Amino acid sequence: MKESRHGKPLLVVLTGGIASGKTAVSDQLAGKGVPVIDTDRIAREVVTPDSPGLQAVVKAFGPAVLDDNGNLDRAALRQEVFDDDSARRRLEAILHPLIESEARRRIDQHDNDAYVLLVVPLLIETGLFADADRVVVVDVPASTQIERLMARDDITREQAERMLAAQTDRQQRLAAATDVIENDGSLEQLRQRVDRLHEHLLALSSRRRNRSTRNP
């Protein structure tokens, strides 16, 4: 990770496997006034009807990826890139720069905050935001993810296992982490762990701003 400019808020990336509890963590921090930027939401926004992003996707994959109302048919697009690495790379080459550009525009709106939380579920897979100051991984055992997925999406164990297999290995995520939130207990335990993380990030931000003040 590259060191951020002095005086700027910490850029904190939150990631984790599917059904790990990223939303619970980001919601709690948002409740404390931390600005939260979710790249999944941005990914949907950059392909709204008539947007340059959607036009580029249609140019690359054809009008079959649109539904009858001119919206992106995500199921059809997934079918286009499923098990096709070259198609997936073409899609990423279109979307990732748009997502990163919009995310950074929003980050720049929060210069007076201690830190900005950027939610990037596929951080390891995409390689984006390598300049983050901290990488927070929400971690749970695979068995817990499977149980949560089965309950949340009403799917079979086999389907849940396939969804996990399609993501980055748990150990790869942990290897990239500067901070880990274990989410294998109760909601109260999670709340306490997030509180401790928040205080830690505030302290880091304060120290960096103090260094910047002493060394303008």
Score class of each variant (00 low, 15 high):
142 A>L: 12
99 I>V: 03
98 L>A: 03
133 D>T: 00
119 V>T: 07
142 A>Y: 05
184 D>F: 11
99 I>Y: 10
118 L>E: 14
120 V>R: 02
197 L>S: 07
108 D>M: 01
173 R>S: 04
163 M>F: 14
121 P>W: 09
164 L>I: 02
96 H>G: 10
96 H>C: 07
177 A>H: 04
180 V>Y: 09
146 I>P: 02
136 V>M: 04
100 E>K: 15
168 T>K: 03
120 V>K: 01
169 D>Q: 12
113 D>C: 00
142 A>K: 03
112 N>T: 15
178 T>D: 07
112 N>V: 09
150 M>A: 01
158 E>A: 04
92 E>R: 05
202 L>D: 01
140 V>P: 12
126 T>V: 08
112 N>K: 12
138 V>H: 08
197 L>K: 11
163 M>T: 15
91 L>M: 13
170 R>D: 07
92 E>G: 03
186 S>Y: 13
194 V>C: 08
162 R>M: 09
123 L>E: 07
111 D>V: 14
130 A>W: 05
86 S>C: 02
109 Q>A: 14
103 A>E: 00
188 E>D: 11
133 D>C: 01
138 V>E: 04
164 L>H: 11
169 D>E: 12
200 H>Q: 13
203 A>S: 11
100 E>G: 02
118 L>F: 08
175 A>L: 07
83 D>P: 04
170 R>N: 04
190 L>R: 12
184 D>Y: 13
121 P>G: 04
86 S>R: 15
162 R>N: 05
205 S>W: 09
104 R>W: 13
90 R>T: 15
193 R>T: 10
117 L>W: 13
193 R>H: 14
157 R>C: 15
204 L>V: 14
161 E>W: 01
97 P>I: 02
95 L>G: 01
143 S>M: 08
89 R>Y: 05
166 A>M: 09
186 S>C: 05
140 V>G: 04
154 D>M: 08
104 R>G: 01
82 F>A: 10
166 A>P: 13
101 S>M: 02
180 V>W: 03
150 M>N: 01
94 I>Q: 09
107 I>D: 00
161 E>S: 06
178 T>Y: 00
124 I>Y: 12
145 Q>N: 14
150 M>R: 09
87 A>S: 07
151 A>G: 12
123 L>Y: 12
107 I>F: 03
196 R>G: 03
128 L>I: 03
180 V>I: 13
186 S>W: 10
149 L>I: 13
129 F>Q: 06
202 L>M: 13
187 L>W: 11
117 L>G: 05
147 E>H: 10
176 A>Q: 09
155 I>T: 14
148 R>C: 06
82 F>W: 11
105 R>T: 01
174 L>C: 03
141 P>Q: 00
192 Q>C: 08
128 L>R: 13
106 R>T: 02
100 E>V: 15
110 H>G: 01
97 P>R: 02
134 R>V: 05
184 D>T: 12
173 R>N: 04
144 T>L: 02
